[in-house]
Design a protein around this nucleic acid. Structure first.
Lengths: 336, 336
DNA sequence: TGGCGTGTGCGTACACCGTACGCACCATGA
DNA sequence: TCATGGTGCGTACGGTGTACGCACACGCCA
């Protein structure tokens, strides 16, 4: 992952809704700092604020919104990180002109941000997503807890950046293989590999509410290019894309629960393993589910549900189906 | 319905770990009351406790485990609810004999339990899973907060029960339609319908480890019966089952995030909608993703991702693939 | 007929979370 | 010089799940 990605995520990812992912805040409509950010953005859209204009000072904002100084500062900092605004120390913050040229400025801030995201990923990787907390990340890095908020704005944003970084670990090749099927396979396997490495990801991503994730878009772009030769209408292509993604995610989600369970209680607890298996087998073999029972006993003793094989098989089956459907279509839809 | 994981159970047998779902307790190995429950069950297995034996009293347990009285009582009550033990007030608790005949006794306790589960489902349905809290359920029912623990043992158990009740709303018909494909379709649609009604389920299901869910087993049994005519080996049948489930769940997870977002901030918040869409479009149409952009503009203006259509299409494609694969197989695998 | 021991019931409190707030700080420019 | 700008972080609030502490009602035996 390049730090450019991080900057991107930081700039653009702030649009996440607080509470959309994290479990807190059942009634809070919107985070205070976010409200201010939104308002400034609206003023930018309506033209009430022009590039070069000076924003209200931190204290002015705090007074106007009846909010703590730090909260107003947080809002301004967030805006600055997104690049829509430029903080000029000891002078004020002014609206950045045009399409935010500041994307390439590398500072120590970005470095710290990267460390934070990496630490968070490490925690999520080997302790599971529920074990990830801002306080924990801070402790791991030896930083004061609240200082993290100077770099990540909120936990949701942190999760967003984690996803972005994780996906950036795998890169689509510059030169795609021949044929739409091979390209779809490649993309799916790539996504799968990422999910394997970071099981928590399956729960963090959501394709539905389109966050502008750089890598997700690159991925989508790849899929669309692959499908071009099939001449599917736009709507159909989009559906194929979503379905493929849903398939990978569907398996990955199961992968996650496995990883979580393993991570959370060292698995060596024999009692823990036995507890449910016993109950499960007792019910399963109660005679009320004869067909399932038969299959269960028909399994080889050392049967292992290999998620990799499962994934490959499912992918193959699905692409077979798609290929058949395309072949049935009128027009030149050359398979493979 | 994590029958995906049921297969795993055959292999290693995971368990529902307390704390696997709830976000608390990052380091707590296992809940105190659960430890006691486990120990008693182990003694039952090893024969140290025989049917008819008297268990240690609440106070004795509390002393021995260095735990509060109420915690020991909680453990005993949990055991009683599971039917492995019978509480005789003012006398003690004795080990129930044999395969727990008490499954059918309906008491006011079960009634309250049902009310709790229903209230919880109602909350999750229209406020989303993150808004579901024990305190909230208690408030909704006008019950003292801690009194809920007399009926549900823990939030994890509550989630488990919610899933069970939700799935029980849809019933597989007694007489299956003709042909394996129609049967698989029927089962998948049934599961899908449940997920639509209760979007939160998609996330709960895979968190709940392979508990012996009655309905999940019925579902698995149905699938296995449907696949019998295909003469797939046990291992393959299991895989098909898991894959089908993963597919439905994969789409359902996306459905959930949509539902959550809608529930959380009344959607009439124009700013909220604009915020993400604007950022998304700005990046998407930046010229770096030409193929995706082309598809995006090729969509009909009012294009909305219809999850129902998506589901049907994906199901069709996948079953097409499976059918083709079965037809290619040696032996009498009559399709349709 | 006490009092001891039983399970019962619920209010309080703890540990943890995300993060808004309060305040001390420092660098500037008028 | 000092008011005014942003900076940095400790504290505290409102939330969570649930263990703990204590009061209670009853059955048995002295």
């Amino acid at each position: 992952m390049s730090t450019a990605v991080l900057a991107q995520a930081a700039r653009v990812g702030q649009g996440l809704r607080t509470g959309a992912i994290c479990t807190s805040t059942k009634t809070m409509a919107i985070a205070p700092y976010q409200r201010i950010v939104d308002d400034v953005k609206r003023q930018l859209r309506t033209g009430a604020l022009q590039p070069g204009d000076r924003l209200p000072s931190t204290r002015e904002l705090a007074r106007r919104w009846k909010v703590a100084l730090a909260t107003a500062a947080h809002a301004l900092r967030t805006l600055a990180q997104e690049g829509v605004v430029k903080a000029v120390p000891r002078v004020g913050t002014i609206v950045a002109g045009g399409p935010s040229r500041s994307g390439t400025t590398r500072g120590s801030a970005d470095l710290t941000r990267e460390r934070i995201v990496r630490a968070a990923i490490a925690i999520a990787d080997d302790e599971g997503l529920p074990a990830l907390s801002i306080r924990g990340v801070a402790a791991k890095l030896g930083l004061p807890v609240m200082s993290l908020y100077r770099y990540v704005a909120s936990k949701d944003v942190l999760l967003f950046m984690m996803a972005e970084v994780a996906f950036a670990e795998e890169r689509l090749p510059a030169k795609p293989p021949a044929g739409w099927r091979a390209q779809l396979e490649l993309a799916a396997r790539l996504e799968w590999r990422v999910f394997q490495r970071h099981p928590w990801l399956a729960r963090v991503v959501n394709l539905t509410r389109p966050q502008p994730q750089e890598n997700a878009l690159a991925y989508a772009d790849w899929i669309m290019r692959a499908l071009e030769e099939t001449r599917l209408p736009a709507q159909e292509a989009m559906r194929v894309h979503v379905l493929l993604h849903a398939f990978v995610q569907g398996i990955a989600v199961n992968l996650e629960s496995e990883a979580d369970a393993v991570a959370q209680s060292g698995m060596n607890d024999e009692e823990f393993m036995r507890r449910n298996l016993d109950a499960f087998l007792r019910v399963a073999t109660s005679g009320r589910f004869p067909h399932f029972e038969k299959v269960l006993t028909g399994l080889r003793p050392g049967f292992d549900l290999d998620f990799d094989a499962l994934f490959e098989q499912g992918l193959g089956v699905w692409l077979d189906g798609l290929e058949a459907r395309l072949a049935r279509r009128p027009g030149p839809a050359k398979p493979r």
